Simulated scan of single mutants.
Amino acid sequence: MLHSDIDHLSIWEVAHRWYDQDPNNSDPSALPLPVQDMLRTVTRMQYRHDIQVCNENGIVLKDEKTLVDFEHYVDFESSVTEETTHEEIDEKTGEPKTVTVSMIYEDPENPLTDDERWERYQEFSERWLRRHATATKDFPQCFKNRIFERQTLERVHINKNSVCDLCEILKLPLPSFWFTEIERQEHQNKLTGQTGDDEKDMLPGRIKQDQIDKFWSKLADKQKHRVLCREIAQELWKASPNLSIADICKHEAIRRFGGGRYYTKPDTLRDWIKDLDPRPAGSKKGGRPRSS
């Protein structure tokens, strides 16, 4: 079994180790059928953005799951920035400080047409997905034509989390070369809908750290930011119950630590936290940020 510190491998090596084959002595023109099938499966799923693609250093490449959707896309060349300031207490010094928050909107004085906006979004998407497209451009010859070009399959990597995703999607057992017996049993229980007695009775505060890490790693960036922004908003309202939703959305903690700075449409942050507003219904009017 591999050392626990190894968290990514080439898809060539993974497909071979999965079936106890030596990736070093393998002939690409005479691969065992199970290895061929696994290579075709992995390349197809990576090509279609079903599972993540890593480079040789294990860095996950941007894909369609991390691409901002068209609804929330803002073209920065035709946008305006609105800056607001507010006072905060510095947590380290206890002294008041002035915080400046920038909000980016599409310029209402020079709006793009729908066609122009879509064209620029497509250009943005191509730039975002460029490395993924380059890494997987030759994959169709593998999963369609059964041509197994070793150099290509060695250059593209897959991490452990993506192997878990693959096994969950296809209802496969985890491979023993990379996962412990406990991990494989937990995975199998999950596939069959079974849980141990200790897991059934487990309180939220007693969830194991590795379970938390695994859950967190599967979230898209937008999902992570939503969770963080909601947690931060609750703490801000505990400290200052009279803050408006607009105040919370513009707060430096939301912008900096919750990832709120990545969402230029005010309604995005507002929709995430509005149900947490502790103020009486009558006092919530007028607290909505200016919409673009």
Rank of each mutant, 00 (worst) to 15 (best):
S176A: 13
R261G: 06
D165W: 08
V74T: 14
P175K: 02
A239T: 10
A239K: 09
G205R: 00
N159E: 13
F179E: 12
P28K: 02
K285S: 12
E77K: 05
K222N: 00
K250W: 04
R17Q: 14
V227C: 02
Q223E: 15
C249L: 11
P32N: 14
G286D: 02
G282P: 02
P34H: 10
D210H: 12
P289V: 04
P289A: 00
S26Q: 15
K208V: 03
V80K: 08
S240K: 14
R256Q: 10
I147M: 11
E119R: 04
P28M: 05
R130T: 15
D275S: 13
N55Q: 11
D75N: 14
V74R: 04
R230D: 07
R44S: 14
E123D: 05
R256L: 11
L269F: 02
H187C: 06
A220F: 06
I89T: 15
K238V: 05
Y262I: 03
T85S: 14
T43A: 05
L2P: 14
T195E: 10
V99N: 07
I248W: 04
C54A: 07
S292F: 12
K62F: 04
E116Y: 10
I11S: 02
L172E: 13
H251G: 07
K285N: 11
R279F: 06
R117C: 10
L33S: 10
G58F: 14
E83C: 10
D275Q: 07
K144P: 01
T180E: 03
S244N: 06
E126K: 13
I248D: 00
V80W: 02
Y121M: 09
P278S: 01
I147C: 12
H8P: 08
Q234S: 08
D22Q: 08
G94M: 12
N25E: 13
S217P: 03
R48I: 03
Q21M: 13
A220E: 11
G258R: 07
L39E: 13
Y47N: 11
K265W: 08
D63A: 02
D107I: 04
N57P: 01
I158W: 01
D221F: 05
L243I: 07
E71D: 14
S125M: 12
T100C: 11
T134P: 00
S240N: 14
T136K: 03
T136L: 07
N242W: 03
D107V: 05
E199A: 06
S102P: 03
F179T: 09
E168C: 00
V227T: 03
R290P: 00
L31V: 13
A281V: 15
L191P: 06
I89L: 15
R226G: 01
A246S: 11
I273H: 05
P204E: 00
K92C: 09
E123K: 07
P173I: 00
D210G: 01
E91H: 09
D213T: 10
H157E: 08
I169F: 01
W128Y: 15
K97A: 12
Y73S: 09
C249F: 12
D63S: 09
F143V: 12
K218L: 05
I273M: 10
